[in-house]
Design a protein around this nucleic acid. Structure first.
Lengths: 163, 163
DNA sequence: CAAAATAATATGCATTTGCAATTATAAATC
DNA sequence: GATTTATAATTGCAAATGCATATTATTTTG
């Protein structure tokens, strides 16, 4: 009772509606709810540090993969290119990132994180880790791992780029 | 190789940084990436129908749980209350929702979906279902079910309200 | 190799957003 | 039961967002 009905096989069925699935069985709904809270909670911590969600995301990505072209960073950071452009302007003027012209393609600007940028992120990290831990409270390691594995498959299924 | 290091046991460890975990092992990152795509893909379909993300979310929730106070709807729909207030204004004037005063508490306005609202959502639903199917392509039913179960636990862990 | 098509970034602008403050009502406290 | 405190919803406003476009550089094509 309460699981998603599986089509018997093959044949196209009259599309199951959201009301029949139920909000709490619809993965995208649950994910939006969870990430809504996660991002809102984090935003509170960021404002104290003068960061916004796009800025924080850019820094977070750069802390792992450095020296990215802006367009690639936009994909990784899940921020609109135009929004990111403006965020980077500020991050650069605050000395949290560096802008380097790409030597082989002069259209490209590569973004790198500075020591100051890393420090800013480090200040935020404990909050991120805390909210992360809260999310997975009482969820066994094995389940967590399986969950991440599924997420990786989903990203592969849905993403538009190869990264 | 490439899994999250588990603290040996007990003792507090020097916090593991994001770079060590890796973006593709960090669940919130993956979830933001996936939902970013999901929402962006959906937005495209919505604009054709004159809907925005907040409006669509309100309708989607109402299609499952009707006659909600605005403040509760805001939580379910993951939309800021002030934003929702304005979205509902438009939905109401377009005849997609109904606004009823709560009989027992005159501060409260209860929102209900109209037939027209349901019809609008029905028009969008095939796209939602298609993107949903794409997300879970080649992911076995059992895995999908386990994934949703974990999501439900996570929401319980992180949410601020009892619903 | 000139012309056209594609790509990376920035920017103008209208719209949307989120925060704080406001208004109206209800509940709690003294 | 009057006063304080809390809750629901709206609204003013500055800031952020997304789209379309502009600009510059590269690649492709004829």
């Amino acid at each position: 009772m309460n699981e998603i009905k599986t089509p018997p096989s093959g044949k196209a069925e009259p599309l199951q509606r959201l009301g029949e699935i139920g909000l709490s069985n619809f993965a995208p709904y649950l994910m939006n709810r969870i990430m809504g809270r996660y991002n809102a909670d984090l935003r509170q911590e960021m404002t104290g540090l003068g960061l916004t969600t796009p800025k924080m995301r850019a820094l977070a990505v750069l802390s792992v993969i450095d020296d990215l072209p802006i367009s690639e960073l936009a994909v990784y950071a899940v921020v609109e290119q135009s929004t990111l452009s403006r965020s980077l302007e500020q991050l650069a003027s605050d000395g949290l990132v560096r802008r380097d012209p790409d030597p082989s393609d002069s259209r490209v600007t590569r973004i790198g994180i500075t020591e100051t940028g890393r420090a800013a992120l480090d200040q935020l990290w404990p909050s991120m880790a805390r909210i992360y831990a809260q999310m997975f409270k009482d969820i066994p390691d094995e389940e967590r791992q399986a969950f991440v594995t599924t997420l990786q498959k989903m990203l592969k299924n849905i993403r538009k780029h190869d990264f």
